[in-house]
Design a protein around this nucleic acid. Structure first.
Lengths: 132, 132
DNA sequence: AAACTGTTATATATTATATATAACAGTTAT
DNA sequence: ATAACTGTTATATATAATATATAACAGTTT
């Protein structure tokens, strides 16, 4: 598995897992229909509790990223990913505004900020290594 | 005051206050040297506790956004704002990557994401109203 | 002297996070 | 069918984060 937990991080473990699974889908490491490890085996691999994994799976299921087939277990939603909902747009706008404000105050130019954002998108869909 | 607390938000009150003060500086509503309300009066205005305001002020002071003159009280750092530190760059990169990954998975194009980011920066430095 | 400033200390209540153990119904493989 | 697995649910516990309440202190300001 390409997932690693940072026990020192201020980000909750279940949130780290949610983020990394979405990044896995964005990068193409995970495709619609792909099976995911069971809550117990993934918890064992990561050295965390079963319920922490289950919380992440449940959140991703509620948002439409994952499905649970009674047979195959948990899989990446084979019917496609959720679109740009109003709730996501609100979250995106709010977080971008907070980040942009601090960036501007610290003297990061609009162009430099834009390049950071573009790089983050590129990094997300290629998975990992930064380009220039 | 231009600050409003959302008691229903999942974002902690002290964090909402931190964000809105930084946005106030970014938009030009607050300038270096400008005095801020006392922890007691601002807490009373917002209907929250003195210690919640103090926590926000303390964080902003540690990061270099605010100063406390024994006479004038708390002011926006008159010696200028902190620059782009490595810690901020790490936080910015990590949060942008998370947001970009979800945006990409949901089908938001690189161009649409870039425009959202540019709009957030514009919105931050003008303060509020969205442009097109 | 009175009213204010940030700061610190102590205490309490609520919620979020994470773990532990156990059990259930359904599925898969031996 | 028995055993091993699946997600799911329930219960309990421990720790940390968040927020409030009350009080006090030293230093300013009026």
């Amino acid at each position: 598995m390409f997932i690693e937990m940072d026990l020192q991080s201020e980000v909750p473990l279940y949130a780290q897992l949610v983020d990394q699974l979405i990044e896995g889908i964005a990068s193409g490491a995970l495709h619609p229909g792909d099976p995911l490890p069971s809550v117990r085996s993934l918890a064992a691999d990561l050295g965390i509790n079963l319920h922490t994994v289950n919380k992440a799976y449940t959140l991703l299921k509620q948002e439409g990223f994952l499905q649970v087939h009674r047979k195959q277990g948990v899989v990446v939603n084979a019917e496609g990913m959720p679109g740009v909902t109003e709730a996501f747009e609100r979250k995106l706008d709010a977080q971008l505004k907070t980040l942009a404000a601090e960036a501007a105050v610290r003297g990061l130019s609009a162009e430099a900020f834009a390049e950071k954002c573009a790089g983050a998108y590129r990094s997300a869909i290629t998975g990992g290594g930064e380009s220039l």
